[in-house]
Write a protein that binds this DNA or RNA. Sequence first.
DNA 1: TTGGAATGTCAACAAGGCTGACATAAAATG
DNA 2: CATTTTATGTCAGCCTTGTTGACATTCCAA
Lengths: 180, 180
Amino acid sequence: MDPDVISGAMCMAEGGTGGPGGESLLFLTDEQLRKGIEAMFFAYRGFTADPDRILAAHGYGRAHHRAVHFINRAPGTTVNNLLNILGVTKQSLNRVLRALIEDGLVESRVGAQDKRQRNLFLTETGAALERELSDAQRVRMRAAYRSAGPEAVAGFRTVLEAMMDTDLHHHFKALKEAGS
Amino acid sequence: MDPDVISGAMCMAEGGTGGPGGESLLFLTDEQLRKGIEAMFFAYRGFTADPDRILAAHGYGRAHHRAVHFINRAPGTTVNNLLNILGVTKQSLNRVLRALIEDGLVESRVGAQDKRQRNLFLTETGAALERELSDAQRVRMRAAYRSAGPEAVAGFRTVLEAMMDTDLHHHFKALKEAGS
DNA sequence: TTGGAATGTCAACAAGGCTGACATAAAATG
DNA sequence: CATTTTATGTCAGCCTTGTTGACATTCCAA
């Protein structure tokens, strides 16, 4: 038995992006798709490796990174906002936020209009950690971008956006435009 | 304070891929890099969403998926091989493998030459689960590829490979060529 | 024969998901 | 004004999946 053979849905012709240049056929063999899947797996490991090391040194985990990232991204965001973006339960997020607030990395201010809401901000310390984390991640990302070249970067982003869930894509687009 | 502003390492000119066409400059602003980072975050969520649902229905988790995937990928692979690829401790992997073996999805045969080693294979049931998982993942990947177009796909893969750790890249390349 | 490599297993622990239940304050609605 | 809904926080408990440390077994190799 050799499950690695190109089986099942064979070649899928037709490109479809409307690009007039070059190859207009996409040969999406299972083999090629599998390579993409594995590339995604390994690349994500590389993608998180540097922040993970930094976080471990500070006694935090990936969950803290995500919270810090998006609070920096959209200062003053509410807890509910963050919950929607991160896609976890409020109990999970709260555990993380509590630690960050207690450690003085995040400040939680009662909402101006709606006093039920808490607006979240990074303190100086929090911003410093965020910088440390994103600097490390940007170094790797920049290196990857530069070695791949501008066209590859555009393609990279295009495929990633197509790979998101539509609802996530919605959050992503919202983030791309405004902040909070 | 507005940490969202394009600060720090500003524009990095110079492209460098040697492509004679179009834009030869890569403007890697922190802003653009951050978009790439967030795209990676959201896309990975989409990437794992379908398998996660299937796995949950079977009472398994992502760790089982990874094991099943790479055993299918390289039938007869040894435990040590798998440990190197997956990058976890043998205790973690063993827990997962034990469950899969007990449930009859994976067969562990004593090595022919070296009897210390175990060669791992999927059973029919295991192969069926693998197919279910990779079918789901391929559907999404294929959709993303098709909507992005061939050039984007090439760029996607190029950037991902550049993003891997070099040691991971080594495993990836080994997998790309031979199977065990 | 002895050392080391490959494997398996036990125990304990931590991070970070989850559910369910409950409390509080404030907004919204009747 | 009374009630309901919303936003948030919190407690308790469970699961998966990672970790470390210790130890046993098997078997290749020097």
